[in-house]
Amino acid sequence: EPEARKIVEKLINNGLSPEDVKRWAEKNNNPEVKKAAEEYQKR
């Protein structure tokens, strides 16, 4: 999901860690963003 990846990169560029992004995604019920954050961590 390229859109989710863009969101993850934007949040990380704004100073969030991938863990923060995953928590944000869970709080906002956004499994695509959570998955993208996990993939981002593996890179």
Score class of each variant (00 low, 15 high):
Lys22Gly: 07
Arg23Phe: 07
Glu19His: 05
Glu9Asn: 08
Ile7Leu: 11
Pro31Glu: 11
Glu38Met: 06
Ala37Cys: 07
Ile12Val: 08
Ala4Thr: 06
Glu19Pro: 02
Ile7Arg: 03
Glu32Trp: 06
Asn30Tyr: 15
Lys6Trp: 08
Pro18Trp: 13
Asn29Gln: 08
Val8Met: 10
Asp20Leu: 05
Glu39Ala: 07
Asn14Thr: 11
Leu11Asp: 00
Pro31Tyr: 10
Glu39Asn: 05
Gln41Val: 09
Ala36His: 05
Ser17Lys: 05
Ala4Gln: 02
Glu19Phe: 00
Ala4Ile: 07
Lys22Trp: 09
Ala36Gln: 07
Ala37Leu: 14
Pro31Ile: 12
Ala36Lys: 03
Pro31Val: 10
Glu1Leu: 13
Asn28His: 13
Lys22Ile: 15
Ala37Pro: 00
Glu32Ile: 08
Ile7His: 03
Ile12Leu: 12
Arg43Thr: 13
Glu19Asp: 12
Pro18Phe: 14
Ser17Trp: 03
Leu16Thr: 03
Leu11Arg: 01
Pro2Trp: 15
Val33Pro: 00
Trp24His: 05
Ala37Ser: 04
Glu39Leu: 03
Glu38Leu: 07
Arg5Val: 11
Asp20Cys: 09
Glu38Val: 06
Arg23Ser: 08
Glu3Asn: 12
Asn30Thr: 06
Glu39Trp: 03
Ala4Met: 05
Trp24Gln: 04
Glu39Pro: 00
Val8Asn: 00
Lys42Arg: 11
Asn28Ile: 11
Lys22Asn: 06
Val21Asn: 03
Glu1Trp: 14
Pro18Leu: 15
Glu26Lys: 00
Arg43Ala: 14
Lys6Glu: 11
Gly15Arg: 02
Lys6Asn: 10
Val33Ile: 10
Ile7Ser: 02
Trp24Pro: 04
Glu3Cys: 12
Glu26Trp: 00
Ile7Lys: 03
Asn28Ala: 09
Gly15Val: 04
Ala36Thr: 04
Lys42Cys: 10
Asp20Lys: 02
Gln41Thr: 07
Lys42Trp: 06
Ala37Asn: 03
Ile12Arg: 02
Pro18Val: 15
Asn29Ile: 04
Ala4Asp: 01
Leu16Ser: 05
Arg5Ala: 11
Pro31Ser: 09
Arg43Gly: 12
Pro2Asp: 15
Ile12Cys: 06
